[in-house]
């Protein structure tokens, strides 16, 4: 991880190492509390993706792609989408597409509002992995081009 050839300076790397876990945790918090407070799957997914992008910027793409490779991210993206559609199709069994068919529970509690937290998790997979892939593709493409010209 501490290869001085890749990435930014020692200061950036140290700060990143301290903060990146907190950013990831905050993303998970936003996802899991999406149904009781502002935020949700999309916002949380963006924050989760940013924590990985943070590593990518500070340590270089080799380290970041060792943590979560392109194929793994692509797998999670498809998984999120399939999870969402499966949940939506399960609703047809009880009457309607996208129906929130399990007990809604008590408002303003963490375990409440039926399927919505699960939808949030599915969206966060999709968005987090998707944004990370977009970033990786745009960044690595530029890098291979520079290698070609040299």
């Amino acid at each position: 991880m501490d290869n001085p050839k890749h990435g930014m300076t020692l200061i950036v790397k140290t700060i990143t190492r301290l903060t990146v876990g907190l950013i990831l945790l905050f993303g998970i918090y936003i996802v899991s509390h999406g149904h009781v407070s502002p935020g949700g799957g999309f916002a949380g997914g963006v924050i989760i993706a940013l924590s990985f992008i943070h590593i990518l910027l500070a340590f270089g793409k080799e380290v970041a792609l060792k943590r979560i490779s392109y194929n793994v991210a692509s797998f999670f993206e498809s998984l999120g989408a399939i999870m969402f559609i499966t949940l939506a199709l399960l609703g047809i069994g009880s009457g309607y597409f996208l129906l929130n068919f399990i007990s809604k529970g008590e408002p303003f509690r963490l375990f409440s509002s039926g399927l919505i937290p699960l939808y949030n998790v599915a969206i966060s997979f999709k968005v987090g992995a998707g944004l990370f892939i977009i970033f990786v593709i745009l960044v690595t493409f530029r890098l291979t081009k520079k290698d070609d010209r040299e």
Binding site: S78, A81, I82, I85, A88, L89, F97
Partner: peptide, 18 residues
């Protein structure tokens, strides 16, 4: 059958990429 017109192609698109 209305939701199937969206659900079938979406689900098979993501299964394909998986």
């Amino acid at each position: 059958p209305l939701p199937l017109f969206i659900a079938i192609p979406l689900a098979s698109a993501f299964l394909n990429s998986l």
